[in-house]
Amino acid sequence: MMLIPTLSYGQQKLENEVRISRSDVPKIALDFIDTAPFNKKVRWYKEYFLGGTSVEAKTRFNGKRYSIEFDSDGNLEDVEIDHRWKQAPEPVRQRMEDYLKEQFERYSLDKLQFQYSGATHEVFEWLHGRLAASALQLRYEVVIHTKVKGRYKRFEVLFDADGNYIKSAEFIPKNVDNIEY
């Protein structure tokens, strides 16, 4: 019997990104992106989270939105690609849906990203089409919003390649009073 871990409400995620220029990007991250096969404009961001910072390059490639994440020193962490929910394999999707329904009963999907990680040279080769995606570690990052104990909340939930829950974090909500009133 598969044990489903209970969602931890303790972890929080801060959404705080600041656009930075190329001169603020660590050289190894810059070298990676400059030699990758991206042909559209690349935007660089510094992301602040609880406990640190990271660097992120965003671009469009093969018709999809790519986020390439590096740690603060410029070491590659992963490549995230936006996908539609139905583009996840059916059995994986089903397992993720089962988990989310069990945790939240009702929820709405905001975003799905395929998250690829591995050794830097392997990710580089995969981007160039010289290595199969199966050589990399695949995870699914799902953003949902839901109602928990009477309060509306937004979560990022991470699943492995088979759709098994790994971890989750609750977004710290942004104040939008100035565009509502």
Partner: peptide, 20 residues
Amino acid sequence: LASQIPFNGETVDPKEFYVK
């Protein structure tokens, strides 16, 4: 219809300008 566009990044963060 109200739109809010940050000068920097994807969300409006403290100490940041935006257009509304």
